[in-house]
Write a protein that binds this DNA or RNA. Structure first.
Lengths: 388, 388
DNA sequence: TTGAAAGCGCTAACAT
DNA sequence: ATGTTAGCGCTTTCAA
């Protein structure tokens, strides 16, 4: 039957119907089936396969494997998933046949048939700088370790991303959504179909979140600067880009309040998180204003500040203290070495992945907070020896 | 009919067969269909939907949209792809219904039905350092721009990756394979099913490649060092990790030959491409050997050399010239500023994506070579003013 | 322990 | 211009 089906280019179900004169089978189809059946009595399988007009080499399917192993497709399917009902010898025949045909199951078909997609995605704003690369590396690593495939989507602030995310959701089991990439309403839609975890973004009803500690660490960092006697502090970074930065700013403000100091001036805008942004923003600021310390939203911005300061003949840290955030690789190699906050970026991605799989297994999940720590080096004014 | 099918929990095909007494329909199924049909004469749609036992809210399908719009599923499918045969008013009804039900097509189902997957993948060794992040960013950007989804797979040297790649290939239209991630034999298997492009890896029959210029640029760079009167040059980097590095080494050697100098000593091994690797390798080398210049396989290794030199009291560039490769962001900000080779990493990824889509459209594709250029700064011994 | 066949949500050939 | 239905390659009842 399988051979006839293959030869006629129809499913075995159709062959079956055609042979019984089922009215649902179109006459032309029935004819093809009958012809194929007839022809097969005179030709062997190989001849049929080499027959001109038959598409050259297409992916084999369960049907071919079943035929070769002399079993039904159901058995092939069972053998593949180590179903205990299949005898060892049968399983072996199936596996051998699969091997010989170089066959492996189609994920698209498995997904349609109700199995999981075996894929998850992560949505982030951009792939610039070591931060996102680190998060994605941690995510990818944890996901692949669990046997799933990884899809990535950078939104770049495009609003078309909403539709892309919906589309994504039809081919994955779950997705991690970072920062301000797509609106909550879309997240809710998607969460109705697949598991969702927020990363560095507030949780929603039914959508848990992974965060790293920002506010308290920012308070500690700011206090440390106060301890150096510094009072004219400015925060450098854009609040509208990520919730993380808003929390760092909140901690910065809270530290002022706790110290009974006047509220700090608004953050210095820089239009992005890259070195260039910090360089330009600092250049303009330092030329016009007397500042004791710059608390930067991340390490790249701080590196930019270093350049601007050097250009203006301002010494770091004696004239100006500078702090970063993230503790990227070069932070400890800059001159002076950068005082910053260590954030386990890979772990952020990995934690999000773990929570996502928990959620996919429909287990309870609760928000997770990743600890961060202030790393004192010399850019804050500390001496090399005191804290190396 | 659609309502009956929904109520009975079967496909419309089955309803049709059941009503015609098709023997292929199990008696129990037929009974369910008949019951559903009967019940429906007494209840309206809403009542049926609220009926207990019916699963709460599942993704809507074409069937629901078709029913709501009062058309067949074929029309829904056509309307969605702007088929000119569908009248404007009908299309509008369909789109409205889809909107109201918050429906969008399942990619898994579309793929199974023969459409493209609308997804492509990139396979790379690791997500460490700015190089791979840049390539992937360029790739992602170009792919999303063309409306496809992006899958990523880091192989980390795992051999299990072969199976992962095969699995990947059942849900994508094409894939870019970088470096020494998976064996050629697997690439060939995969290429039989989907389009493949090599990136920074030799082409195969039927598999085109994207490369960046290495050998010639390495020759130019090495010659520049010879021009400074330097003769005891060493190459720092592992040849077994990527074809790119082998080509850089080849250029390094060729430059010696062209200058009638003795062939250079074997490359200094460092076990990786990160700052730490360069630091450790240089520390050991410089303590034991007199070297004029270190030509590093990338900028991170060069940064590591800077650290080792500083620790040993060796001045760069007066005691030791150092060059990198890639021209990552910080290269121009190190002290002394790093002489290196500029490589448009994002463009590498983007070019691979473009070639891949050409291939998917089954157009002819030929290998592509991306130009690189030597960037002279001060770490080679040049004066700041002469080339800033 | 195995097989037959229904169904997953679509597309497209075929029939009006 | 629209509807019917086979089929994509699987999984999973249901029967035997």
């Amino acid at each position: 039957m399988y051979q006839v089906a293959e030869r006629a280019g129809v499913s075995i179900a159709t062959v079956s119907r055609a042979l019984r004169d089922d009215p649902k089978v179109a006459p032309s189809t029935r004819q093809r089936v009958l012809t194929a059946a007839e022809e097969l009595s005179g030709h062997d399988e190989e001849a049929a396969r080499r027959r001109p007009g038959v598409s050259p080499r297409r992916r084999p399917t369960v049907y071919q494997v079943a035929e070769r192993a002399g079993v039904s497709i159901a058995t092939v399917s069972r053998a593949l998933r180590d179903d205990p009902r299949v005898t060892a010898s049968t399983r072996q025949r199936v596996l051998t046949a699969a091997e010989e045909l170089n066959w492996w199951p189609s994920r698209a078909a498995q997904a349609l048939a109700g199995e999981a997609h075996g894929a998850v995605a992560i949505v982030f704003p951009d792939l610039t700088g070591p931060y996102y690369a680190g998060v994605i590396a941690g995510f990818e690593s944890e996901v692949v370790h669990r046997g799933s495939a990884v899809m990535v989507l950078a939104t770049h602030g495009r609003s078309a991303s909403e539709q892309l995310v919906r589309d994504l959701s039809t081919r994955i089991d779950g997705v991690v959504i970072m920062d301000q990439t797509i609106p909550d309403s879309t997240v809710e839609d998607v969460a109705a179909d697949v598991s969702v975890i927020m990363l560095a973004r507030p949780a929603l009803p039914g959508v848990a979140a992974v965060h790293s500690e920002n506010t308290n660490t920012a308070i500690a960092l700011t206090r440390h600067l106060f301890g150096h006697g510094l009072r004219k502090l400015r925060f450098l970074g854009d609040l509208d880009l990520t919730p993380d930065v808003r929390q760092r700013w909140a901690g910065f403000v809270a530290a002022h309040v706790a110290e009974d100091l006047p509220a700090p001036t608004e953050p210095v805008p820089c239009g992005g998180f890259e070195l260039e942004n910090g360089y330009r923003a600092a250049l303009e600021l330092l030329e016009n204003e007397d500042v004791d310390a710059l608390v930067c939203a991340n390490d790249e911005l701080a590196s930019g500040v270093y350049l601007a300061a050097a250009e203006l003949g301002i010494n770091v840290p004696t004239d100006l203290a500078v702090t970063g955030w993230d503790d990227i690789d070069i932070a400890g190699h800059l001159a002076p070495r950068l005082t910053t906050v260590r954030q386990p970026v890979r772990e952020l991605g990995a934690a999000a992945a773990r929570l996502l799989f928990e959620r996919i297994a429909s287990r309870e999940v609760t928000d997770e907070l990743i600890a961060t720590e202030v790393v004192i080096r010399e850019s804050c004014g500390c001496q090399p020896d005191s804290s190396a």
